[in-house]
């Protein structure tokens, strides 16, 4: 399994420069008091990982990986672990940078706002992963891209319809008591989502033929 993670990291190392540049841009923009682009960074990790599926697909790595010891299980597990690892590392860097930027700009650190923004971003990132990866394992990366587009489109349509016909402020108010536990709830939901998604992907890949 370690080997599979090493292979995924080796594949995405060419994107490390891009991530580095984004982190620097984020730091500069933050210090100048311009736009906050911290939310883009963890999201980039998943996008980079999704592009790694394209390389795998092009050279039929998935089929080859099955000929390796424990290939069917390790292939899926390594993708999830590498993505989570990357997202986690980039998020930690972003949080630390956000603290520094906040302190330099305002001489105080707005812990709560930074953490809520970052946890929201990580949650969104993991939501994409949760939906995309099983679709990629089932239908391939190209169809999965269309799938995510339809999903986002669907959420926007349903969201705007709900906003038109329901008084969302009342709905939100009824969940206000959860606000204090928001981060813990997000973490628990994220863990359940990712684990469920992993299990689905594992099952799909365990039956997949090439």
């Amino acid at each position: 399994m370690i080997g599979f993670i090493k292979k995924d990291l080796a594949m995405i190392k060419s994107n490390f420069k891009l991530l580095g540049v984004l982190i620097v841009v984020y730091a500069i923009m933050g210090l100048m008091g311009k736009m906050d682009i911290s939310f883009i960074l963890p999201f980039m990790c998943v996008m980079i990982m999704i592009s790694s599926f394209s390389y795998d697909n092009y050279n039929k790595w998935d089929a080859y990986s099955i000929s390796l010891p424990n290939g069917r299980k390790s292939n899926v597990k390594s993708k999830y672990i590498t993505t989570i690892l990357m997202t986690f590392i980039v998020s930690v860097i972003t949080i630390i940078l956000s603290f520094i930027i906040s302190y330099v700009n305002t001489k105080t650190i707005n812990y709560e706002q930074i953490l809520v923004t970052m946890f929201g971003t990580i949650f969104g990132t993991l939501l994409v992963l949760t939906v995309m990866y099983p679709i990629i394992y089932k239908f391939g990366v190209e169809k999965a891209r269309i799938g995510i587009f339809l999903l986002v489109f669907g959420i926007v349509i349903i969201g705007s319809l709900l906003a038109n016909y329901l008084d969302l402020s009342n709905v939100l108010k009824s969940f206000a008591f959860l606000e204090d536990y928001l981060i813990i709830i997000l973490i628990i939901v994220a863990i359940i989502m990712v684990y469920g998604s992993y299990k689905i992907s594992e099952k799909i890949f365990s039956k997949k033929e090439f």
């Binding site: 399994m1 370690i2 080997g3 599979f4 993670i5 090493k6 292979k7 080796a10 594949m11 060419s14 790694s52 390389y55 795998d56 092009y58 050279n59 039929k60 790595w61 089929a63 080859y64 000929s67 390796l68 010891p69 390790s74 090439f210």
Partner: peptide, 23 residues
């Protein structure tokens, strides 16, 4: 295998590092 292998953006060194963690 015919036409099935590592992604082509990798190097032989990457393959060796990967295989060290597999075999």
């Amino acid at each position: 295998l015919d036409d099935m292998f590592f992604p082509e953006i990798l190097t032989p060194n990457d393959i060796s590092n990967t295989m060290k963690g597999i075999y």
